[in-house]
């Protein structure tokens, strides 16, 4: 199959940024205050995707300084993603409506 990665540049990139920004705005705008903390933590988890970029940078490193910085980058990014997931999941686990707790 002849497939090469689409190069996202210029206005295509600008469109992506704009639509993504509106998406984020819309999602948070309608959230009840009780979920603000888990949601901040959840969005904190989602920018943990940075680990993927750090992985790419490390795999393409060709000198010692690049390898060191790349290693630190992947380490930090992995921490962001894993930590963000665990704390968000723990917080959200606790949200229960009355009916469920009464049955216990």
């Amino acid at each position: 199959m002849d497939y090469t990665t689409t190069i996202l540049t210029g206005f295509v990139a600008l469109y992506i940024f704009m639509l993504a920004a509106f998406t984020g705005f819309e999602i948070i705008g309608r959230v009840p205050a009780i979920l603000h903390t888990p949601l901040m933590s959840g969005s904190n988890f989602i920018h943990g995707i940075v680990v993927v970029g750090a992985l790419w940078a490390l795999l393409n490193a060709s000198s010692l300084p690049e390898q060191i910085i790349g290693f630190v980058g992947v380490l930090l990014g992995a921490g962001n993603a894993a930590g963000g997931y665990v704390v968000t999941e723990r917080m959200l686990q606790m949200f229960k409506p009355s009916s469920k707790t009464n049955k216990e």
Binding site: A20, A21, F25, I28, S43, W56
Partner: peptide, 20 residues
């Protein structure tokens, strides 16, 4: 890095975080 996943996730969080 020409990585759409980072672009979208980053910008969604950037705007959601600003609003929050």
């Amino acid at each position: 890095l020409n990585n759409p996943a980072l672009m979208i996730a980053g910008m969604v969080v950037g705007s959601a975080g600003s609003l929050l």
